[in-house]
Design a protein around this nucleic acid. Sequence first.
DNA 1: TTGAAAGCGCTAACAT
DNA 2: ATGTTAGCGCTTTCAA
Lengths: 343, 343
Amino acid sequence: MSKRGSAPTLEDVAAEAGVSRATVSRVVNADPRVSESARERVLAAIDELGYAPNRAARSLVTRQADSIAVVIPETDARVFSDPFFAGTLHGIATALSRTELQMILVMGQPDDGDGRLSKYLRGGHTDGAIITSHHRRDEFWRTAQAAGLPVVFLGRPFAPVPGMPYIDVDNAHGAALAVRHLLEQRRTRIATIAGPVDMVAGADRLAGWRGELRGAGLRDDAVAHGDFTAAGGRAAMEALLASHPDLDGVFVASDVMAVAAMEVLSAHGRSVPDDVSVVGFDNIDTAAEATPALTTIVNPIAAMARQAVGLLLGLMNGDVVPAAVTLSTELVVRDSSIPTSRR
Amino acid sequence: MSKRGSAPTLEDVAAEAGVSRATVSRVVNADPRVSESARERVLAAIDELGYAPNRAARSLVTRQADSIAVVIPETDARVFSDPFFAGTLHGIATALSRTELQMILVMGQPDDGDGRLSKYLRGGHTDGAIITSHHRRDEFWRTAQAAGLPVVFLGRPFAPVPGMPYIDVDNAHGAALAVRHLLEQRRTRIATIAGPVDMVAGADRLAGWRGELRGAGLRDDAVAHGDFTAAGGRAAMEALLASHPDLDGVFVASDVMAVAAMEVLSAHGRSVPDDVSVVGFDNIDTAAEATPALTTIVNPIAAMARQAVGLLLGLMNGDVVPAAVTLSTELVVRDSSIPTSRR
DNA sequence: TTGAAAGCGCTAACAT
DNA sequence: ATGTTAGCGCTTTCAA
């Protein structure tokens, strides 16, 4: 019988099984140094009492939180509406489900080392962190570093931090693939809706677009920036249409923005793909369902998430892990890029 | 100076400030019974040492986890792709951001009282729980009840549990509004794509549809069930078209399914809204952006989430809280329901 | 293989 | 106003 009201403790189990607390602890933690008979009695007692270890007490002594933080320095509104984050979180959650680790979502604006976020990272609530959607000015990784917290970047940081590996996708190459495809469609005035300049993915995709265009001897001045949201994509497309009305192809740095851009093009009487070929980036679910179906670059989000978890676990385990892992992209051709005359 | 390696503790701060641990604790917890001079010295020491309280130690003694669980008995794939959950989580996160509470997302298949989920609820990791997407067979609330954990249902449970309040939206009334609107468009063969029968929201919306149709003296046999996913909506629409080819109106129990259903209708050469009027439910962002724009019932998800957090906080605080809160719905008329001839 | 005992960092009586 | 002290439930030496 446990003390009335409160949850059963190790002590209760020990009493019920007629052994010491230490033995119960060993059974719970799968320590082999326990006799078969003792183990059986303890297991029976645990079952009988419905015992569940108190994590706080365990954490206090082991100095482990059994959880990792997923840091996303964006507003929760953004996180919960962007399919990119959905994919990332899904991937991480899936990879984590094989472990005993809890995933703790930490959103919100980054700070200068002393806000909520940094406080949290310092509080010892987690055993590691995956930092994603990293912006140039974000520096809370310093907090993590100072606290000795294992960290993995999901998406290459601006300046790699020694000891903090990153997983990235070959953004520049993906963008180049997109442009090459556009060139193959005989497009000669190719614009881009780039991502934010303060994010590596945005900068890399822009660089890839630029490199490929220059290589083909074409102008690379038709650039508008969006913030990876639909509204941002719409605004950027409007700006592009105003500044470069002769465009016949657009590489958009994210599918969310690309779908929005296609709507703007239609609204302006430009047929996609007959007047303008559009290629997105990410290959989110809605890309295939858009009208017209969106040609895009596959961003292996799930694989990245899995890799990130793998690296973090390695880091937490003291293993030697690679400083960087880069995944490749590929082109998926759908209707939005191929003029009907060329089918 | 703190002990080498480890994070500074209360003890370190106390030594640095020249006071006792208790005084530091009082400062940290904003206890007024501290002299101004002591407070200042402690604050300086905290700043100097970069002290952050160890949550595990605190939890151990206060028996509070400073976090609440958001239980969603669906696969993480589903949770992270359905805008309904996005809205819910966003609402909860927003409401929680005013507090010191952490939100812990607990997903995965429900169990019969002894799986991962129940273990977690019993482990004392949280001070309360919001259970959403409740299915008929889910019974882990029993675990919570046995553990004395405050629980709020986001969405009415099949059988209300005394002491566990619920927030719900008037689903039946919303469905009735939808049907009434369809009747006003002179639709006489009105079908429905209902939600899963094992979820209250599904059952209530079906009942609302049925009641209104019968009231109008129309047949209520054109029913297909979907699981609130796009794929489910597509399949249900196909089934409906096969079994009731004469339908001229459809009330779909969720926008995600409604958008999918409209695609199927188009693919079958049925014009929406000229041949068939469609009304959805939820009013997610994409409803307004669909082609045609989807007429739907506003589901006040954010308000529900806010209410749920409010009730849970009240419960955790020992306040007397209402056993149920029901929010009302309203109709938003867009293009999908009104034949062009009637504009 | 098992148990006794110390202690993780903190809060909360209780004493002063 | 401040300090002293006793645990919270667990893991982990150290002895036996």
